[in-house]
């Protein structure tokens, strides 16, 4: 059964496009780009598992190494999802069902992300101790206990996604958006939006018990096909005039993809992120990752703007 499953999946190709733009306010305030995005897999019309991770390092001065924290988060998440994919691909159906259960994902993927991130961050700190400017910041932030938890300096959100055969897994901590266009054109958030994350409030990899704040979702694309996935940091969503922008944005991208092809989307994606990151939008770092199914490109049902 497993072989049959993956043979079916091998017939479906995915295109992955990504971009990350420094926010206008970050440029103005001499702050680094604190977003990070990484991908892996056999991209561009090659079959096989696909991995995508997006992170948004916190902008508050307490998190003065958040760009490093975000970069570490995306790269190690890709590695952990690859290890998870290896197990899923080799497993029989029963074992595969166990592997993709929520309990197992928490016990393996999430625990690995949290512990590996902490280890990598502490390694970075050991190799690059806080400098005099950073120590001044620490001394000024008396309410933040850097001694007991130095990872605060590296605080970041994280969204990870992998497509392994017919299984799509999403994991998320903190703000940012995960949006899916299903095969029937409907658009939804596979990970429910956390209503507590408003006005720059976010959960974080650096908090106590981060696993409790992770949200996960598993979709079987054999029973519920997917045409497109979008992962984005809050610089994108915070720019949108429409509160429920998800349907409009993904439908338009689907239309662009069909009418102009993925090359056109690839060329224009940075412009969309730049606009959101500009003074006309949120002014914040903006990162967009797109995964588009070839099935979408082979159809022509979406009316576009052009």
């Amino acid at each position: 059964m497993t072989t049959q499953l993956f043979e079916k999946t091998l017939e479906q190709f995915w295109y992955v496009e990504m971009t990350s733009e420094k926010g206008f306010m970050h440029i103005r305030n001499n702050m680094p780009l604190q977003d990070s995005i990484s991908s892996s897999g056999n991209l561009y019309s090659e079959a096989g598992p696909i991995f995508l991770a997006v992170a948004d390092g916190h902008g508050d001065i307490s998190h003065f190494r958040s760009s490093t924290g975000a970069s570490i988060a995306t790269s190690l998440t890709i590695e952990i999802l690859q290890q998870f994919a290896d197990k899923v691909q080799l497993a029989g159906q029963t074992e595969k069902d166990r592997l993709i259960s929520s309990d197992n994902i928490v016990e393996t993927v999430l625990k690995d992300i949290v512990s590996n991130w902490k280890t990598a961050v502490l390694d970075d700190l050991a190799n690059n101790p806080f400098n005099s400017n950073e120590i001044k910041t620490i001394e000024a932030r008396k309410l933040t206990d850097y001694e007991s938890n130095p990872t605060v300096a590296y605080g970041t959100t994280l969204i990870g996604c992998t497509i392994i055969g017919s299984v799509v897994l999403f994991v998320q901590i903190g703000d940012g958006d995960v949006v899916v266009m299903a095969g029937d054109g409907s658009v939804y958030n596979p990970i429910p939006i956390d209503p507590s994350l408003v006005s720059n409030r976010t959960t974080s990899l650096c908090q106590k018990n981060p696993i409790q704040s992770f949200r996960i979702s598993v979709i079987n694309i054999e029973s519920t096909p997917i045409d497109m996935i979008m992962l984005s940091t809050d610089g994108f969503g915070n720019s949108q005039i429409e509160p429920n922008w998800y349907k409009g944005v993904l439908t338009d991208i689907a239309s662009f993809s069909q009418k102009h092809g993925m090359l056109w989307v690839r060329e224009n994606l940075p412009n969309w992120a730049k606009l959101c990151a500009s003074r006309e939008g949120s002014g914040d770092d903006t990162t967009i990752g797109l995964i588009v199914s070839e099935h979408l490109l082979n159809r022509h049902e979406y009316g576009g703007k052009i």
Partner: peptide
Amino acid sequence: LMPGGGISRR
């Protein structure tokens, strides 16, 4: 062309 219903400042 920007997908969606437009952007604005926060």
